[in-house]
Each structure stands twice: as C-alpha cells, then as structure tokens.
Design a protein around this nucleic acid. Structure first.
Lengths: 235, 235
DNA sequence: GGTGATTTGTTCGCGGATTCACAAACTCCT
DNA sequence: AGGAGTTTGTGAATCCGCGAACAAATCACC
C-alpha cells in the first residue's frame, strides 16, 4: 500500500468509511423512494443508524457534495456515492456451491439491483447440473476458467462446505478472480492483490451469545442480595 | 456501560477480541479433529488467519490458559473459549421470515453444532404454514410471544424483507428477545439493552466492488504512458 | 542441578477511527 | 442590504486496536 501522491486524487478513503458507504447508499435510496429530495446530515445519519458527525466526515472524504445551510441533494449524493463505490457499472459474479445458501444468494434480489449480475452458478456435484436456479443453469465447477475469462469475472462467491473452500479459492484466483466473498466457515489464504471478505453466520450468533450471557450474569448478580452489590449501575 | 469495578472479574474483553473468539474456537475445533493435542500461538494464529501477537493478547483477556515453552492444550483452550463465549450452554433461537435465506439458515448445520437450537420458524404468509423446514413446522408470526415465553428465547433472527424488519424487531423485543441478528437490508432501532448485529450480503459485495474498481484504476494508470507515472510502487 | 532453547503473557509506542466543537457558507426574512 | 438561523466541512482531542519487542516461565538435555 504505497501512498500514491498523485496529482488529482489524494483519495485515501479509510477502510471504515468504505464499509459504511453502502449503508449510506441504501439509506439514500430509501429516502428517494419516500419522495424526499433533500436531507440534512442529521436526517441521513439517523436513517443509516450512525452519528451525524461521522457521516459528515465520511462524506467529506469523497468531496464537498453538500450545501451549507441546506443539506444534501438526495439523488446527487446517491449518484456520487454509487460512483465512488463502483456500483454504477455492472459486475459479473460467479457463485460456487449451490446448496441452501447458494440458492438463497442466487435468488437474492439485492444483488442485481446494485449492479451485480450472477453470470454463473457452479457446483461440483453432477446431480445438480440439471437444475435451474433463478433462471441460471447450474454448471460443473470445471467450467470456472472458461466462464471467468468469457465474462471477465473479477468477483467470486464461495458458498461451499468448509472443506472445499481453499480449493475453490485457488481455482478462482487461477481463473483471474481478484475479489472473493467467502461464506464457508474456513480461513482461506490467497496471494497478495486478491481481496477476501468473509461472512460467517454462526460467528455472528456467537457474538450475540457472548453479550447475552453477560447480560444474564449481570442479572444474576443483581438478584443476589448477599453480594456487596457494588454501586448498582443504571441499566 | 458503567465500568463495574467488581471484586473477582475485571473482565472487560474488547469488542474486537470478542469478535475473534469464535474464529479461534473454529480453528481449535479443526485442529482437534486433525488429532492435534497441543499447539503454539503461532500454529493457532495461522489456522485462524491472524497475527500471533494479537492471538496471545486476545487470549490473555480470558486468563492464562497456556504454558510457557509449551503452548496451549487444544481441548482445554477450546473449552475455556467456548465457556467464555457462552456456547457451552444451549441457546434457543427463533427465525422469522422463511424465504430463501430463512430456509438456508434453518438448514444451516453450523448453528446446532455450536449450541444454537432453532425452536421455531415464523412467517406472516399463511401459504407457508403447512411447510416443514429442517424438521420444524413453519408457524404464524403471531405465535411469537407464546413461543418466546415458552422456550425463554433470548435470540431472534430476522430474515424478512426490509419493509417488515422494524415491525418484527418491535414484536421480538416485546416478546422478551434481547439479541437480534438482522439479515434484512434495513436499519432497525431497538431500546437500550437490546443488541443488534446485522449482516447484509450486498454490502459485502459492494465493499469488494470498491476495491476492485480501485485496482482497475491503478492498472489503467499503469497502462497510460503519458502520465508522469509517479514513483511506480510495487503491486 | 544447571544451562540453553522455546513459548507465553505483557508492556510500550503508534496509527487509525470516533467524537466534539467551531468556523465558513448558505438561506430566509425583514 | 443585512442580520439571524441553519447546516456543512474540518481541525483537535480522545480513545481504541494493532504489532513489535521483551521479560518471565517452562522444558529438554547434559
């Protein structure tokens, strides 16, 4: 990551900001669908569930797209964020592993509406190759290279069991994929230059369980009168 | 968040650490299944995809469960982390919204194997109430209160369309749910004391798209010889 | 028993992210 | 035209997390 001191764009958008831009985009779309043409940072922040100061700082990394004393033009800001993220263009995507989750992903309407086009569904199991999911036929995993080069696929989604994830990732990288979204509960390693994001459904639940357990402990303590009870906090 | 200066446990585990504990747990399970009884922080760190110093610091928040010069006993550490997270006990869970994603979640084996038991599947659509998903019958959404109190459900999963998410969340909170995992692409607001975590599939893809677009820009610049070309960084 | 090799647990410095607070800029009304 | 009110954009302070480096503790071997 060399700090590129280029002429025009000193655009080093912090990773935390990048992760929130899609949230802002979604909130802006909701506002636009509600007929709202202009909004303040306060409005948008509450719609996106963040602090308004954070929102303004995040947007300031993109440029000055607001008007002091007025706020932001919803459609204009929406376009600017979409352009910054890159969802004004079309991204071909392949999904590997058409089990329950793969099915759900293939049918997820939120992909298409945001510039992602599922060009292929791949599965190693020949049983599935007859299937038609979301209007796309499931094809053998070995077709990956052909499909990837034909459609210039840069983004791949792994929805296989954990055991297959690394193999799939390797094949994806070999086929030219440089961004991977991994739903398999496994750590995959890829060469430099390839981005991986992972989503693990059970991990999210476990994080909730931790906090839930702590809540229960707190209550258990509050219910025990034989404890010194400390300075009984609020909540 | 009052800093509770309690007697025994000065246990304030950072949120970032909490989020990684399930990853360590998964890595330890994989090691145990491979027949490994003991591992160093280096081993476990690489299995979990993190820095070994970070791993040791994370584990130090739980206590001193390793042995200097030796490493960690896999089973012992596994139990300690599981206990800390709270997955040694059984967590009843309700899933609301049995569309494609709800189906996938209901069938996801990673839940049951980690202490989460799906006690009910709820959907507002009467068409689905005959269905049997993963051995559990889909029931009307209005049964939420009865089910939640009967099974003492503390964790709820929202897999509905965005428009229904806030309503479902309100009803869950009213029914005593205090932790919510939200898959709907919407921001939901809940009272203090209720935890919400959200997973948005399309947001993850958008983050990848942003980086992908930046890679493309970099390459485009590299291909243009009429630019000053800066100090041509690596990668 | 003692010495060297190994590995954990912890301290320290640093960079990034969040929040506050305020100046700059714009609108509206008189 | 000018002042009051509003809202953005941004410097500054604070907090949090990460990674390196090192001391303490344990084992193996002689």
């Amino acid at each position: 990551m060399t700090a590129r001191t280029s002429s025009e764009s000193a655009r080093v958008i912090p990773e935390a900001t990048v992760a929130r831009l899609p949230v802002y985009l979604r909130a802006l779309t909701a506002l636009a669908e509600g007929g709202i043409r202009t909004c303040s940072s306060e409005d948008l922040a509450s719609a996106a569930g963040v602090n308004s100061a954070k929102l303004r700082k995040d947007l300031s990394y993109l440029g000055s797209y607001g008007t002091r004393g007025v706020g932001y033009d919803v459609d204009y800001l929406r376009y600017q964020i979409a352009r910054e993220i890159g969802v004004t263009q079309d991204w071909p995507v392949v999904i590997v592993g058409i089990g329950n989750l793969g099915h759900a992903l293939a049918n997820y309407s939120g992909f298409r509406s945001r510039g992602f086009r599922v060009v292929a569904l791949l599965d190693a199991d020949p049983e599935r190759h007859e299937e038609l999911v979301a209007g796309v036929q499931v094809r053998p995993f070995d077709d990956l290279e052909a499909i990837a080069s034909e459609h210039a696929v840069a983004i791949g989604v792994i929805a296989t069991p954990a055991a297959a994830a690394q193999d799939v990732a390797d094949r994806m990288v070999a086929a030219g994929v440089t961004s991977i979204l991994n739903f398999a509960p496994a750590v995959i390693s890829v060469p430099d230059g390839v981005d991986v994001r992972k989503v693990d459904l059970s991990i999210e639940l476990q994080i909730l369980a931790y906090h839930e357990q702590r809540k229960a402990h707190e209550h258990a303590r509050d219910d025990l009168p034989d404890m010194p009870a400390a300075v009984g906090g609020d909540q």
